[in-house]
Amino acid sequence: MKNVTMKDIADKLNISTVTVSKALSDKDGVSEELKNRIKKVSEEMGYRYNVLAKSMKEGKSYNVGIVIADRFIRDDGDAFYLKMYQSVVKSLSKAGYYGIMEIINHEQEKNIILPSVIQNNKVDGVIILGQMSYEYVSSINNRGIPLVFLDFYDELLEVDSLVSDSFYGSYILTNHLIAQGHRNIGFVGNILSTSSILDRYLGYYKSLLSNGIPLREEWVIADRSEDGTYIEIEFPKEMPTAFVCNNDGVAYLLINKLKKNGYRVPEDISVVGFDNYIFATISNPKLTTVEVDITVMSDEAVKAIVGKINNANYRIGRVVINGKLIIRDSVKKIN
């Protein structure tokens, strides 16, 4: 079977090889519609980039570093960030890039030991997946390499970021609980740990304010330390009738602890999560939650990093991706 060339693709689409080359290299001069069509046909025909020759010619590696803190790659089965990583790699592949993951441990982050892919100039740009300390991410930013934050943002840095709509998602979750008759509602998550948890807390708080419900500080319960290490959830003396959790994994752990303490879910206490990932469906009962669109977030992050690699002035600011409410079995309607 002969190798497919750009001329073969051009002949099939009745266009010039120059147009094919521009489309496959993500250069200007080709409409997005035609560019996507060319990429689809090239993939169907089995065309493969000569990445080595291309990188030598253009002075690029066509590698993107995907940096993640090891606290997000846990042994308890929560694979949300691994799923997002896989989605990012698929999006990078479609754009003609390879993704190289580097996991950063607590000591590396604390001592500002930068990822080896950056130190050794192995990548054209970096996507940081999940929040890391300001000192660490600012040190990466100071290297001047194209950089995108995925699933978090930092108010102190002007770095492009892609986030789910944590504020509105938590707001509609809390409103759903209130619509089911709940007025004693707690929140589980350390609001000082990540920007997304803070936004989810603020969405919860806004819902309470909008409905004339006072915030009870003893019902805002930490699930982790400020550096992201998970801790034992401590129940208040007086329990609310419902909890808003900052993610599905925490909701799953909370439900198990409630059961061990003699509470029934949702008969005694209702629980909602966030993400609509694996824990939402293996939980008993299945979780009412907000779905995060991982595919759209990954595609937009890759579009941003490729844009920044090709144009030093390319900016997207902070892009917020909407989620949707998924209603299951973990909420009871009360009088």
Rank of each mutant, 00 (worst) to 15 (best):
K12N: 11
N14M: 02
T17Y: 03
V20W: 04
V30K: 05
K35M: 14
I38F: 05
I38W: 07
I38R: 07
K39D: 03
K40P: 00
E43F: 02
G46Q: 09
Y47R: 04
M56L: 15
Y62M: 03
D70T: 12
D70Q: 13
D70E: 15
R74N: 14
K83H: 09
S91A: 15
Y98D: 06
I103H: 01
I104D: 03
I118Y: 04
Q119K: 15
D124V: 04
G125W: 08
G130C: 10
V137N: 11
G144S: 09
I145W: 02
L150C: 13
L157Y: 07
E158T: 07
V159A: 08
Y171W: 06
Q180N: 15
G181M: 10
G186W: 02
I191P: 04
S195I: 11
S196M: 09
I197C: 05
L198T: 03
R200G: 05
Y201N: 05
G212N: 14
L215E: 10
R216W: 00
V220W: 01
I221K: 11
R224M: 15
G228Y: 03
T229H: 06
F235H: 09
F243V: 11
G249N: 15
Y252V: 01
L253V: 06
I255K: 10
K260A: 14
S270C: 09
S270V: 09
V271M: 07
V272Y: 06
F274H: 04
N276E: 13
T288I: 03
V290Q: 01
D293W: 07
D293H: 11
M297P: 02
M297Y: 01
D299A: 06
I309F: 01
I309D: 00
I309K: 00
I309V: 11
G317W: 07
G317C: 12
G317F: 10
I321M: 05
N322R: 14
I327L: 07
S330W: 11
K332R: 15
